[in-house]
């Protein structure tokens, strides 16, 4: 049903630590690996080994440069569905294929009733939904709904594939509706935030900001970048200059 549930029993989601993420893309590739054989039909690729490869992925890792001078940072930025509490991607769906689960808040697409009109992807400000041209249906992060409740796999694996794969522990998974959960405590401690909160879609997933640079005694945060030293005309330099000329003859 396209109408949103008034409340959800849980708010399952991810917490992404931008301070720790090293941009290795392990989350994206493990997501692709799991979901291409999972819940919906395979995530199709076109021209995967050619000059113009493209395909449906549910998780993308950007790298941004932020700030100027010595304060500048490289921030690796994984981006996937945020499983919003009040998203328009669900309500615009004409068939009810796009829905939000009352039991845990996961936003899913029913691949059997989706007509592939793409309107939900237009409604999402996060670019989180990707159309599968082979399947003719919309694909999106399922929060690995076929892993997290799956009793046929070891308990340690009952978390989303991206969280399981992250080598640096930059991704957390849990109930963000429960203030006592590990993820909620982490969000509170680190000042976790919502992307584009201005839309009011109330994303469940949270991002933890990069930590402020540690100031070391004697360093100035606005100092200029290092310079290559200029020749100073010393005896050693003259010797090398003579050797360079002599050998160049």
């Amino acid at each position: 049903m396209t109408s949103l549930p008034a409340t959800t029993n849980k708010k399952l989601g991810l917490v992404i630590d931008l301070d720790i993420c090293v941009g290795c893309h392990a989350c994206a590739t493990s997501c692709k690996e799991w979901n291409t054989g999972g819940y919906s039909a395979p995530l199709s690729d076109h021209d995967p080994y050619g000059g113009d490869p493209s395909g449906a992925w549910l998780n993308r890792v950007h790298a941004f440069e932020v700030g100027e001078g010595a304060n500048a940072k490289t921030v690796h930025f994984p981006r996937s569905c945020l499983h919003c509490e009040t998203p328009d991607c669900v309500t615009v769906c004409p068939t009810g294929a796009s829905y939000k689960r009352e039991e845990d808040g996961i936003v899913l697409v029913n691949p059997d009733t989706c007509i592939g009109c793409k309107l939900c992807s237009w409604a999402c400000p996060y670019g989180a939904r990707e159309y599968d041209y082979d399947d003719g249906v919309m694909k999106k992060c399922t929060l690995c709904v076929d892993r997290i409740y799956n009793e046929s796999i070891p308990e340690v694996d009952r978390i989303p594939a991206c969280v399981r794969a992250c080598p640096t522990g930059a991704r957390g998974f849990g109930d963000l509706g429960d203030p006592d959960s590990d993820v909620s405590k982490n969000v509170a401690a680190r000042g976790g935030y919502n992307l584009l909160d201005e839309f009011g879609y109330k994303p469940v997933n949270k991002y933890l900001p990069p930590r402020a640079p540690v100031s070391v005694a004697g360093t100035k945060s606005d100092r200029p970048a290092e310079q290559v030293p200029k020749p100073d005309g010393s005896a050693v330099e003259r010797l090398f200059a003579w050797a360079d000329q002599a050998l160049s003859r």
């Binding site: 931008l18 993308r60 930025f77 992807s121």
Partner: peptide, 22 residues
């Protein structure tokens, strides 16, 4: 990106080499 408190945000490495659906 929520990174405005650090400064201006510029794209560095794209997540994919060729345009995707989005």
């Amino acid at each position: 990106t929520g990174l405005g408190h650090i400064g201006k945000v510029r794209p560095l490495d794209p997540p994919h080499t060729r345009p995707n659906f989005v």
